[in-house]
Amino acid sequence: MNIFRLLGDISHLLAIIILLRKIWMSRSCAGISGKSQLLFGLVYTTRYLDLITSYISLYNSVMKVVFLAASYATIYLMYVKFKATYDHNHDTFRIEFLVVPAVALALLINHDFQVVEILWTFSIYLESVAILPQLFMVSKTGEAESITSHYLFALGVYRGLYLLNWIYRFWAEDHYDLIAIVAGVVQTVLYCDFFYLYITKVLRGKKLQLPA
């Protein structure tokens, strides 16, 4: 464990809590992409299967349970409890265009052709594009509530810190995982455009408005 990864995981946890709290407190999921949340749920489910089989550390196991629970809770709130506030009209990204290529790529490029490894690889590829429906929805509605943009910013910080974590691990532990790194770079790049808007708009108290 290193400080970059610890802060990254905390930022990731913060993002998930921010979103869950926002939906719960406002009793509404307006402006939130349910499709992205479904994809994140799928990412955690396929990646954390080893929760049962292999024990790495208390921290690792606790965080996996928290991420899974928070992700399922968010999906439940969006698709069941506050279903009436779900914005179908703007959450229209075709997620099959993300899931199918991720499955294909996981079958083609992986470290080991075993079920758990393929599922892990699938979750890595899927996570790198899972935010696209949310970014697409923000572009369609032309704006994002400030809480939603804080959520996206925290997610972006988590990804950025993971890049630093991989640099540190390569330098200090001579450890690297190209699949995780390449997918992670792709994912972080997707946030860059949003980062620019967040820094220039939201932090100046303006609403996050995309140029029409």
Binding site: D9, S57, D112
Partner: peptide, 10 residues
């Protein structure tokens, strides 16, 4: 070293 045995990252 490219090692992927220990998947210790979340």
């Amino acid at each position: 070293a490219q090692d992927n045995e220990t998947k210790d990252e979340l």
